[in-house]
């Protein structure tokens, strides 16, 4: 079924992770391992548990059962300073960018540097402007408010915020959702470049196969809260798994049935 990855040092390991909301079992025993420096993309349809899995790794949600090890340390039950210590290793690009409305762009990018690392504001502003340049945005954008930016620019600012503090692990939640194909490709390129520059481990979730093919070293498919296939990106087209084949070809017919009332 799932789980073992390559042969490098394991950065993130999930074992038997379960999470339910009331009677709905969203994660039903996730086993997944991500090697250091690897870019893993988790694909799957809407409501299959991708975002919940990501939030469990990030500590935003606490799993009901199972373990999540980051750099060999169990993290599911840690809180307070220990949690903040783990979070310092992470950078995250949210689906809707999740920029802070009340802060200008540069403060959004510098947020982790000012609050998390205690950098002074002037220094942090300079780093923010440099980081914005790395995602193709000029210094004139720095003083704008997030509401003044287009969707693509917001995503790029979100990416700049994620990489500004040089994290060990980068998470991308549906990085191309809501963008046109060209801007999607720009974001994909930026993700690949920045992850490579940082030498970071990357975990992305998406249902955009073009994006998955571009940014992944490995791909895992989640279905009904379980990893049903995992392999190198080059193996995705001959996985031999009917669920994966239906998903990557976007067919309505196949083992994955949508809950649609047909008349």
């Amino acid at each position: 079924m799932a789980a073992a990855s390559g042969h490098g040092k394991q950065k993130i390991v999930l074992k038997g992770v379960r999470k339910s909301f009331g009677a709905k079992h969203v994660l039903d025993g996730i086993d997944l391992s991500i090697d250091e420096g690897q870019s893993l993309v988790v694909i799957g349809g809407s409501g299959t548990g991708k975002s919940v899995m990501l939030k469990c790794i990030l500590g935003i949600l606490v799993p009901d059962a199972g373990s999540i090890h980051i750099d060999g340390k169990e993290t599911t039950r840690i809180a307070g300073r220990a949690r903040e210590g783990v979070m310092k290793k992470f950078g995250m690009l949210f689906q809707g960018a999740a920029l802070f409305d009340s802060l200008p762009v540069w403060e959004n990018v510098a947020f982790g540097l000012i609050q998390g690392q205690g950098k002074n504001r002037r220094e942090a502003r300079e780093v923010a402007i440099d980081t914005l340049a790395q995602v193709g945005l000029g210094p004139e954008v720095a003083k704008l408010m997030p509401a003044e930016l287009s969707g693509g620019m917001q995503k790029r600012v979100g990416l700049a915020r994620a990489i500004a503090s040089h994290p060990d692990v980068l998470f991308f939640d549906e990085p191309t959702t809501g963008l046109d194909p060209i801007m999607s490709d720009v974001i994909n390129e930026l993700i690949v470049e920045r992850v490579k520059d940082l030498g970071a481990t990357a975990v992305s979730i998406t249902h955009d196969m073009a994006s998955a093919r571009k940014i992944a070293d490995r791909i895992a498919m989640i279905y009904r809260g379980r990893i049903i296939w995992e392999g190198a990106v080059g193996d995705i087209d001959h996985s031999g798994n009917p669920y994966v084949e239906q998903f990557i070809h976007g067919r309505a017919e196949g083992p994955i049935q949508m809950d649609i009332l047909k008349t």
Binding site: I60, L99, F100, D101, Q115, G116
Partner: peptide
């Protein structure tokens, strides 16, 4: 609004309580 646009989750990921 911060909750539904994931800004509160973003705070957590930026090591801010």
């Amino acid at each position: 609004t911060m909750r539904v646009t994931e800004q509160i989750d973003a705070l957590t990921t930026l090591s801010t309580n």
